[in-house]
C-alpha cells in the first residue's frame, strides 16, 4: 500500500546526474521551477521536454519509473485539465447545456497539465537522483548564509535527517499496532467517515506515545554521544564543487537564457 508510492524515492544507480553536488542540483531544481512559470508559449515546452529528456537519459532512471510516480497525483492532473477546459472563456467549439469548451480552453488545459507534469517530474528528478543524506547536507549548506539572520540551518537539517531515519521505523510500528488492534476486533476498513475517524484512536494514541518515547530516548542517546548543536561540529563528508558541477551550471544557464530569450521573442 504505502510502498507503492514511488514519487520522489531515491533511485540508487551510478550516473552523471547522481554524482553532481547536491547544492548545484537543489539550486538548478529551484531555478527550473521558476523557469516553468516564465514560459508563456506552449511551443517553448518543446525545449523543456528536450532538456528533461536529456537529464532523464543521463540519470539512468527508467522513464516508466518516473511516470509511475505520477500515479498518486493523477487525479489532480485530471482536475486541472477539466477545470481549465471548461472554465476558460473564448471562442466556443463545443456546447452542451452548461458545458462550454473553447479553443482557448483546450490550449489552456493542455498548457496547465504540461506545466504541472513538468513541475513534478523536475522536482522528483532531484530526489530520485540525490540520496536523502546528500539532500539534507545540500540544504544545510545552502541555508548557511541565512544563519546570520537567525535561520537555524543546522537544526533544520538535523530534523530532516532524523525524520528520514525514523519514517521506516514508524511505518513498521503503525503496521504492528494496527494488527494488534485488529486482533482485538478493531475495524479500520468499514463504516462512514465518522466511524473510521473514531476507529483511528486506538491506532493513533499508541503511535503518538511511542513516538514521544522514541524522541525522548533518542535525545538522550544523542546527548550521550556529545551532541551539542552545530557549533564546532566537523563533517565526515565535505561537499566540494567539481568540474562537472560547473559544467552542469553552465548548461543550465544556457537553458535559462533560452527560456527567458524565447519569452521576449515569441
Amino acid at each position: 500500500m504505502l510502498r507503492d508510492i514511488t514519487i520522489g524515492q531515491y533511485y540508487p544507480v551510478e550516473s552523471a546526474i547522481h554524482r553532481l553536488d547536491p547544492r548545484i542540483k537543489i539550486s538548478i531544481s529551484f531555478l527550473y521551477l521558476i523557469s516553468l512559470f516564465i514560459v508563456k508559449d506552449i511551443r517553448v515546452f518543446g525545449l523543456v521536454t528536450l532538456f528533461l529528456l536529456m537529464i532523464i537519459k543521463m540519470s539512468k532512471v527508467p522513464v516508466n519509473y518516473i511516470l509511475r510516480g505520477l500515479k498518486p497525483i493523477f487525479l489532480i492532473i485530471i482536475f486541472a485539465f477539466v477545470i481549465n477546459l471548461f472554465m476558460t472563456p473564448g471562442d466556443s467549439i463545443f456546447h452542451y447545456g452548461i458545458f462550454n469548451i473553447t479553443i482557448q480552453g483546450v490550449y489552456q488545459a493542455v498548457f496547465m497539465v504540461l506545466r504541472l507534469v513538468y513541475l513534478i517530474v523536475g522536482t522528483s528528478l532531484l530526489t530520485l537522483t540525490t540520496s536523502p543524506i546528500a539532500l539534507t547536507d545540500g540544504i544545510e549548506h545552502l541555508l548557511t548564509p541565512f544563519k546570520k539572520i537567525g535561520l537555524p540551518a543546522h537544526e533544520l537539517a538535523m530534523m530532516m535527517t532524523i525524520a528520514l531515519r525514523f519514517i521506516p521505523t514508524l511505518l513498521e510500528e503503525t503496521d504492528k499496532i494496527m494488527k494488534a488492534q485488529m486482533a482485538r476486533g478493531a475495524d479500520f476498513e468499514s463504516g462512514n467517515i465518522f466511524n473510521r475517524a473514531k476507529a483511528l484512536v486506538p491506532l493513533l494514541v499508541p503511535l503518538f506515545i511511542s513516538a514521544f518515547r522514541r524522541a525522548d530516548e533518542l535525545a538522550m542517546a544523542m546527548e550521550a554521544r556529545c551532541y551539542r548543536g552545530g557549533e564546532n561540529r566537523t563533517r565526515m563528508k565535505v561537499l566540494k564543487y567539481e568540474k562537472r558541477d560547473v559544467l552542469a551550471g553552465l548548461v543550465f544557464g544556457l537553458y535559462v537564457a533560452l527560456i527567458v530569450g524565447l519569452r521576449f521573442i515569441m
Binding site: E173, A183, V201
Partner: peptide, 24 residues
C-alpha cells in the same frame, strides 16, 4: 502480540481491556 503494552490506548485499565469484547 510481542510487547503488547505498546497497544494500550484507553484512559482507564478497565476500558482498555473492554475494547476487545466490545468490538465483538
Amino acid at each position: 502480540f510481542q510487547y503488547p503494552e505498546y497497544q494500550l490506548f484507553e484512559e482507564t485499565v478497565a476500558r482498555d481491556i473492554a475494547f476487545g469484547p466490545e468490538n465483538l
